[in-house]
Amino acid sequence: MATTETAHEAAKAGMPQLDFSTFPNQIFWLLVTLAVIFFVLRTVALPRIGGILTTRRGQISGDLAAAEELKHKALEAEKAYNAALVSARAEAGKIVAAAKAEIQADLNAAIAKADAEIAAKTAESASRIDEIRAAASDVVASVAKDTAAELVVAMGGAVDARAIEAAVTARLKG
């Protein structure tokens, strides 16, 4: 082993790169290798990878387009929904306003009726109060006359009915 090693060393003292005896060998195998790689890449690998990339790119752009379309549709749906919402709201407002007006009318009628009833009752009450007051003042006059007469009697005077009446009436008016 040692002898072959030294013989080897002696034979190739310089750079192995400049050993021209190996050049044909390297060049031959290099060309073979390049041809094989080129053939494999050209016929199998590159078309396949290129195809994969193209289909993926197509798929992605198709998916993106579909997503864009769906987004568009969603926007449209939202717009329609919003429009429906707006019209429904307007309808509801209208209904509410109508109901309000109706209620207001009913309310007004009821108020008017109640007012009329109240006015009637008030008038009746007033007349009765007047009656009562009149009755009361009559009673007060008669009581005052009686009392005055009694007082006069108690003081030992003669009762002059007419004078007493006139005095009491004057006082009551006073």
Partner: peptide, 16 residues
């Protein structure tokens, strides 16, 4: 020789 399989051949083949 130009056709002899060498270590260069081996490593080029491995690269392939």
């Amino acid at each position: 020789h130009w056709y002899t399989p060498t270590n260069a051949t081996l490593w080029m083949a491995l690269a392939t």
